[in-house]
Write a protein that binds this DNA or RNA. Structure first.
Lengths: 348, 348
DNA sequence: CTGAAAGCGCTTACAG
DNA sequence: CTGAAAGCGCTTACAG
């Protein structure tokens, strides 16, 4: 099989070309480029000039082959297999953005890959040396891939995960204090005089983040001597469609409620539409609070009160924790504190 | 500087280990893994078994160093320097998603990088062999980087660009038929009986895509013997904020209009808010049409009529065109036809 | 169909 | 401070 060469391109400039031009050995060129202090200032200048003149760039493959380090991290984004093509969860998209920037700040490249939880993805990126470490991001049933995490640890693969933080979890996890986020939402609604709060979102064991949001909200109510009524909880995945349907189900059952705490912004936006379609006013009849702090929350009508996860900090911490591991240092799991953005969906 | 080794990890399995285990030469292992037909079926099986048993993965750096091909594409996303961290244009985020998937389908990895137009980015990814080719995506003033494109061509860098398609452009561009999109929007509004159509978006030479959308809409009006009034055009970047301000400016001037065609969904969503804040009803008083077909368009209130760019097809075509170039084949620029999604922001 | 060997372009002890 | 040399792990003519 004949592969076309990049015919239009001049033959590649190597460190040997630089060495000739600068009148030094190839080893010295390498030292200059790696920033070694063992180089005479004059020599350094000559080499740097040659590098500039010939527009030389170090070959990453040769360098990585030698050093056994890729200078690259891989982001594996796990998607709900049912997700349609254009529909990546906006929260994870925001995370992708902040992780990309964090990688750049730390001088690393980022490989991005979308995966299904069911895939046999494993540590392919790591094993083939494409990346020094993995960042795992995603939704779907946590239980489904817990065993894979243990395997990654056993193999010595460097990785960090964004998600719910448990006490004895395999590997390093950075996550949001979801319970506290739920508490913020609950207290806010209580302050507004709401008493019958519905929770929309899957609160089963496979979805520990949603579960913690639910638990936190329940705690806030308990502090006030109230409780989150079980019949006002409806399961929903994190999609607008699921939120719409969950709110419809709630209405269909004829149960009275004066507030909705949705486990995600998408669910909240879907729920608001269902409420409005049913002739209810938001927030006059039903106050709505979401979770995530996605850009959409500002644009919907009415603008959505939401528990904000700071994706910029999250991305930075994920990258820092991963690079620490790569350097052989210890990294620990930790939780970020969310904040509440109050908008018109909850206050009149 | 002492670098910690990945101490917890067993020493790396190489093709030589596989060769020993399978009782063949290392060269044969490589042949099997590359899918060479010059291997006995039996031998192939033995090698494949050893690969499985030892969980061997080809070292990408060694392979790429030898073949001079990275098996990786790089996506350079150019951002408005003023963009705040969490605020990547949702249209480009959707493109990122579809490009990631398209790369996976074609067996390539994707490196993602955010860049500022002003940066001296150039062809770093290509020169350092990190990627076989570049996908350029972004907004901001086109004129600002046209010369850089010519330079890429001169260097023989493989790249494709998403953007406005001109007749004699350097390199390969895939883009939307923006003029036709503008025509779709214009005709739609005319059909609804609207006559005084405002255009929100920067229609200067530096923004050829917006300009084409404006031109197309003007043509639709011209076909009906009408015209797009110059005093109803207000510049706006593609942000919700800019859309809000542009609509405010329009209202402040006291000019009458019964429809808004916004150059992007973000502009449209901002404009809708400004109109509603001013007590106008959408669409009863003013019909609004956006451009892009972002997910947000469905969620806002009222849901937004918008000219849809098919990001899935766009991503696939970008990757195909780039890989064709990498193989040494010719690739040509082409335009995708947009469609119109009619929603409640234009029809009652 | 298979093996021995060269070589991709670096980095880094080692010797001076 | 600098150079000569080994070697990272592959792929692919070349010879059989």
């Amino acid at each position: 099989m004949v592969q076309a060469r990049r015919s239009s391109k001049k033959t590649r400039v190597t460190s040997l070309d630089i060495a000739h031009r600068a009148g030094v050995s190839q080893a010295t060129v390498s030292r200059v480029l790696r920033g070694s202090p063992l180089v005479n200032a004059d020599t350094r200048c000559r080499v740097e000039e040659a590098v500039r003149e010939l527009n030389y760039k170090v070959d990453r493959h040769a360098s990585s082959l030698r050093t056994q380090r890729a200078g690259t991290l891989a982001l594996l984004l796990f998607e709900d297999p049912t997700a349609d093509d254009s529909h990546i969860n906006p929260f994870f998209l925001a995370m992708l953005g902040s992780i990309t920037r964090a990688c750049a700040r730390h001088g690393h490249d980022l490989l991005v890959s979308f995966q299904q939880l069911s895939d046999d993805w494993h540590a392919d990126y790591d094993d083939s040396m494409k990346a020094d470490g993995l960042i795992l991001l995603g939704y779907g049933d946590y239980l489904a891939y817990e065993s894979t995490l243990a395997q990654l640890v056993a193999q010595g693969t460097h990785f960090v995960r964004w998600g719910h933080v448990w006490p004895d979890q395999p590997g390093v996890t950075i996550g949001c204090d979801n319970a506290n986020g739920g508490r913020l939402a609950g207290r806010h609604l209580l302050q507004l005089g709401r008493r019958r709060i519905a929770f929309l979102g899957n609160a089963s064991d496979g979805f520990p983040e949603f579960q913690a949001r639910h638990r936190g909200c329940a705690q806030a109510l308990a502090e006030a001597g109230l409780s989150l009524a079980a019949e006002l909880q409806v399961n929903a995945d994190s999609t607008e469609q699921a939120g719409y349907e969950a709110a419809r189900a709630l209405l269909a059952h004829g149960r009275s409620f004066d507030a909705v705490f949705a486990a995600s912004d998408l669910i909240a936006i879907g729920a608001m539409r269902a409420l409005q379609d049913a002739g209810l006013r938001v927030p006059a009849d039903v106050a709505v609070v979401g979770f995530d702090g996605t850009p959409m929350a500002r644009f919907c009508n009415p603008p959505l009160t939401t528990v904000v996860q700071d994706t910029t900090t999250a991305g930075e911490l994920l990258v820092q924790a991963l690079l620490a591991q790569v350097r052989g240092e210890d990294a620990v799991s930790l939780m970020l504190q969310p904040t509440l953005d109050v908008r018109a969906s909850s206050i009149a």
